[in-house]
Computed example of a mutant assay.
Amino acid sequence: MDAFQGLAQFTDSQKTLTQVIGQTVPLIDAQTSDQRKIDEASLALGAYLKMVTDIVSQASGARSLRVTHQDANCTLATETWRFCIAEKSVTVNINSQNRTVWVVTLTSADGEPTGLSDYPAVQIAGYQPLFIPELSDSTAGRYAWYYQNEHGEPLTADIAQSLAARTVELPGMQILERQDAVSTVYNYP
């Protein structure tokens, strides 16, 4: 299971629920005899507890959200992280053979990003990205990848140029911390 559905529901209804709890619960004390007031407060608290319990339950699976101590280095160094992507055919050495393959290079304008668990990559549907150390410089924020399909065949220009779907992957980025992330696309000549 995955806790994102529960978190989304909680985030969406938290303001209204907090307001209802604030209007109903303070009216209840040891001398309250109005059953309607008690039921309204109970309903509001019950809804809140149900959502929190669902999130905890959903997050308890082995492959799900974990709340852990966050290291001080787990954030991007700046509020924005600017990068550009270049794609072209390049001859690279693959298994001791020079092969002309489609290479995608992601270059950061802000230097090496911090707070990621691995190098940023551009994913192309149906292909596995393979890092090219010779064309990359992580300290400068430059990452080059070539791609292979499930049969181990490298992606070439004649196929790559017809594949539109590209996804930038930032492994390990704290997405809950960066909910305000906004992406912008520029077309460089």
Rank of each mutant, 00 (worst) to 15 (best):
M1N: 11
D2A: 05
A3S: 10
Q5M: 07
G6Y: 03
A8Q: 13
A8F: 07
Q9A: 14
Q9T: 13
F10H: 08
D12A: 05
S13K: 13
Q14K: 09
Q19M: 12
I21P: 07
G22K: 09
V25Q: 01
V25A: 10
L27V: 12
L27R: 13
I28Y: 07
I28F: 07
I28G: 05
I28A: 07
Q31A: 12
Q31R: 15
T32L: 03
S33L: 04
Q35D: 09
K37T: 10
D39A: 11
E40F: 03
A41S: 09
A41L: 07
S42T: 09
S42D: 02
S42H: 01
L43T: 01
L43N: 00
A44F: 03
Y48I: 02
T53I: 00
T53F: 05
D54E: 11
I55G: 00
V56M: 00
V56T: 02
V56Q: 00
S57D: 06
Q58R: 09
A62F: 02
R66D: 12
R66W: 04
T68S: 11
H69C: 05
A72I: 01
N73A: 08
N73S: 11
A77I: 07
A77L: 15
E79R: 15
E79I: 07
T80C: 13
F83L: 10
F83Y: 15
F83M: 14
A86Q: 15
A86T: 15
A86L: 13
T91W: 06
V92M: 08
I94F: 13
I94P: 07
T100V: 12
T100R: 12
V104Y: 02
T105W: 02
S108E: 04
P113Q: 10
G115W: 04
S117P: 04
S117Y: 04
Y119P: 00
P120T: 14
V122C: 11
G126R: 09
Y127P: 03
Q128S: 12
Q128H: 03
P129Q: 05
L130Q: 14
E134G: 02
S138Q: 05
S138I: 01
A140H: 08
A144R: 07
N149G: 10
G152W: 08
D158H: 06
I159P: 05
I159T: 15
I159Q: 14
S162D: 14
L163E: 06
R166S: 03
L176K: 03
E177I: 00
E177D: 08
E177M: 00
Q179A: 03
D180Q: 14
A181K: 04
A181G: 03
V185L: 11
V185N: 01
N187K: 06
